[in-house]
């Protein structure tokens, strides 16, 4: 599968990545190559494989619904670039979407 320039621009916009024209050219080649490889894998698998048949007591292996004490949430908050009133500050949202 070969991607177009528009495909790459669209994916870059969704990922909030700004590309130079040179980078865009390179990404068309790189991403097309990756997708081409996926097509080969798909052909080799010849149809959808079941996810797994191992169903041995999976639920018992899940985490129990039991709370743990919170470890120093203040330290986690302090990692934010800008905080106020115990909350993380983010810039105006509407213009960015």
């Amino acid at each position: 599968m070969r991607l177009s320039h528009e495909d790459v621009e669209h994916v870059a916009a969704l990922a909030r990545v700004r590309l130079t024209p040179q980078e865009r050219e390179r990404m068309v080649e790189v991403l097309s190559s990756v997708l081409g490889h996926m097509e080969v894998l798909g052909d080799e698998m010849a149809g959808e494989r079941p996810l797994s048949t191992d169903r041995i007591n999976v639920l018992a292996r899940l985490r129990e619904d039991r709370p743990c004490p919170i470890q120093d949430s203040g330290r986690l908050l302090a990692l934010g670039p800008n905080t106020r009133a115990g909350q993380f500050v983010v810039p105006r949202i509407v213009q960015d979407i």
Partner: peptide, 26 residues
């Protein structure tokens, strides 16, 4: 539930902001 979906932080409603957080849910 008593805890979040993927980490053991408590889910109590009305706690002070950012007091029920951990590296997983952040």
């Amino acid at each position: 539930t008593a805890t979040k979906l993927f980490c053991p932080c408590p889910t109590a409603f009305g706690a002070a902001p950012n007091t029920s957080i951990c590296p997983v849910c952040l």
